[in-house]
Design a protein around this nucleic acid. Structure first.
Lengths: 203, 203
DNA sequence: GTCTATATTGTGATAGAC
DNA sequence: GTCTATCACAATATAGAC
């Protein structure tokens, strides 16, 4: 029988993730994280020297949930349409499970743009291969002429935006029904790639 | 000769707008707003009783910059394609002039969803007419079958998302060139409606 | 490792002189 | 109306007992 106990450090990280991702670095309170973890503030500082350090741990982890997927879209050599279908489906699933993730990341990167420099240089997030792939398809006449950078941004926008705007969408479009919104998100896994491919496919 | 002096209240509002919209309610500091306005903190409280009151003034004003445009898209009786072209163009222009506006609004509405209830009920922001218009075009066979709610969200996403993600886009896609990003945004005024119409137009 | 108690700092808000 | 000085409290961080 393995260690059934979950380590205090893990409990803290889980609590911190929940609070930080919902409220951001500025909005989160150490007391709130301690309450969520069922411990006291002092113990937070025992495990992680400062709020900043604790936040960094959560932020790095959050980045890992979204960067690899984009890297794969940028680098894999799947056919374009297939790539778009797979990426949008996987990404929407990721965010359906972590709906506050997009707002959290974008917010913190806006607050502290220096984070992006570190991030990009370390991950080697380079869109060139994907851009070339799109340009090639256009040149071969396989798809409608399309500006590759706009296509990339449109793909990301349609996957990510609904989660950042969820409170508004739920209230304005879906009569305050969380359930209707969830169904809407599930539909998007097919609607979004279809919408994109309809736009660039020659008929 | 009119009063050449700009009133202190206006100066404060302008400073508060700049700081609040960049840093949000939680991130903004009264000291910072005072510095920006070239006055001291006490005077802020003299004109606006509290930080909350000052924030509300800015927030209401920010809402007025984005809600009427959406209302018009929802309610006007222009032909669908024309409506999409006009709305996307105007909206992208609005955000190009106020790039921090989208993130600010969405952030604050996520932080305090109660604000949405007030907002929606007062503005009467109802998408039904626009939804019906899209459904009618589908039934008449004028456009490809498309789920109207997804179309609405896609339009908003492509207009709004680039501004919320601008720090990342500038760094990853545009070699840290603010200028390239600005050109990209200008292109979107034609690229986005074209992308949407390509997707739903029968060819 | 975990707790209680306390120090330290930051920040919104007020008092009162001019 | 505008300022300086200060208050009051909230939040991060640390000391020290167990």
């Amino acid at each position: 029988m393995e260690n059934i106990e979950i380590s205090t450090e893990k409990i803290i990280l889980e609590a911190a993730r929940k609070i930080f991702i919902r409220k951001g670095m500025e909005g989160a309170r150490m007391q709130e994280i301690a309450d969520e973890a069922g411990i006291n503030k002092a113990l937070l500082h025992y495990y992680f020297r400062s709020k900043e350090k604790l936040f960094e741990a959560i932020f790095q982890d959050a980045i890992l949930k979204i960067v690899p997927g984009i890297m794969e879209m940028f680098r894999s050599d799947l056919p374009l349409f297939e790539k778009i279908e797979i990426f949008t489906g996987k990404y929407i699933d990721t965010f359906a499970e972590n709906p506050f993730l997009p707002g959290f990341i974008l917010n913190e990167l806006t607050r502290d743009p220096q984070k992006i420099i570190n991030l990009v240089s370390r991950a080697g997030l380079d869109p060139q291969i994907f851009i070339s792939q799109i340009n090639l398809e256009v040149e071969l006449g396989n798809i409608h002429p399309v500006e590759p950078y706009h296509l990339v941004v449109n793909i990301l926008a349609m996957c990510i935006f609904p989660f950042m705007a969820s409170p508004i969408l739920i209230n304005i479009l879906f009569d305050r029904s969380q359930e209707t919104f969830s169904q809407f998100i599930q539909q998007r896994k097919t609607e979004v790639p279809q919408f994109i491919i309809n736009s660039i496919r020659k008929k």
